[in-house]
Every structure is written in C-alpha cells, then in structure tokens.
Nucleic acid binder design. Structure first.
Lengths: 105, 105
DNA sequence: GCTTTAATTGACAAATATTGTCAAGTTAAT
DNA sequence: ATTAACTTGACAATATTTGTCAATTAAAGC
C-alpha cells in the first residue's frame, strides 16, 4: 500500500514516470534545481504559482494538486499546535455558516 | 442574536466591559495603540503571543481564544481560494490518519 | 461650540519569513 | 575514477508582517 501522501512525493513520482530530470523541470519552472529538489523532498514549500505550472508540466490534475497544496499549507499553519484540530473544525464551521448566509443574501 | 464572530470583536467587547482603554491594554501588550485598534477591528492579525497575553489581561479563556485565533489564520490562508473548503477537509483527514497511526506506533 | 481625551488612519520603518542562487558535497551508474 | 543527477547548506534577494509615529476624526464633558 504505497500512497502518495505529500505533494512532493506526487511530483517526484510523476516526474520520474515521465523520465524528466530535475534540471529540466526546474528550467521550465524558472528556478534552480536546488529548489525543486527541496520541494519534492518536502524541505521547502512551493508557491501556488509553481504548483499550477507543475501540474501543467507533469500532466497532473490541477485541482487535485492545488487541494493537496492548500491542505499542506493549512497543516503547516497549525503544526505543533495542540488546538490545531479544534481550530480546523471551527474554521470549517465558519465557512459553512458563511455559505448559508450567502444563500440568504 | 449578537454573536462574537471575530477575535477582534471578542477582544473589544471584553476590554470595554472591563472599562479599559486601548492605551492601557496596548501598554501591557507593549505595542502602540494603533496596533491594538487595528487588531480589534480586524485590520491586522495579532501574533499568537499577543493573544496569550490578551487572554490573561482580559480574563478570557485562553484555549477558546487560541482556537479562535488559529481558525482565523487558517481561513486567512485559504481566503479567496475556490478549493479552500475541500482543502480544509483534506487537512482534517490527514490529521485523523496521523492520529490513528500514532496509536499503532 | 470649545476642549480634552480616545480612537482611527495612513505613510513609512524595522523585523521576520520566504524564496532564490550558488558552490561544494553526495550518490550512483558506468 | 569519471560523469551526471541530485542534495545540502550558507547566504542574498524579496516579500510579508509587525511596528512607530504623526495627523486626523469621533465622542464626551463642559
């Protein structure tokens, strides 16, 4: 059961599957290979713009990749916060409340 | 039905209830009144450290305030992202998966 | 309607965090 | 041992956040 948990793993797997080198993809992204290497290994966060580009370069579903990306940003935000999970739930409820409000407006 | 939606509203309401001036609370927080004014009106985000201090100064429940604070940070992170809600749910699932993993370890 | 005090606003500065480059170091295949 | 791909870490550039200050507005008491 080998799941692609992180966005980095997804990117690396797909890049290798397409037989592309870090150098090549990095060039298209317009960054040093060092950056892409770090992104793939989860040592650095990508910018949203880069995720969009990577989806195109690697033929990955853009929505999926962005959801993945955003969820990692969210988790980063609450990393080692005891109350992180509670906060997540509260955030969801606030969104829902807003959604229903929208309908009324 | 007047709810305290934002952390700013909570802070302002409680400060006024205690009869404290911006100036006074700001001094304890060690920032200019301008900052606190902006925090209360939601124009600026507070730092976590400040939230902790404010809970103490204003006798507010620290956990509640931090949850509120974190949830606002999360929402800020996904503001005007179409896929924000999806990302939130994915983030929650990842946390849960990790929790159950912890039990196994 | 003055005066005084509190709060707000906006331009700017300082501090911090993010993103990037580069060069040297691994790793692995030949 | 050479070569090509990748990794690592120090540091530079950029962007974002957080803060100060001075001027303005708002409200309360006289």
């Amino acid at each position: 059961m080998k799941e692609n948990n992180s966005i980095g793993e997804i990117l690396r797997k797909q890049r290798e599957e397409k037989g592309l080198l870090l150098r090549q993809v990095a060039a298209l992204l317009d960054v040093d290979t060092a950056i892409l290497s770090k992104i793939e290994r989860g040592e650095r966060k990508a910018k949203k713009e880069q995720i969009v580009q990577l989806a195109k370069i690697l033929n990955l579903d853009q929505e999926d990749l962005i959801v993945q990306f955003l969820s990692e940003r969210i988790l980063y935000e609450i990393q080692d916060e005891e109350l992180g999970e509670k906060a997540l739930k509260v955030a969801e409820q606030k969104i829902k409340k807003n959604n229903t409000k929208q309908i009324k407006d």
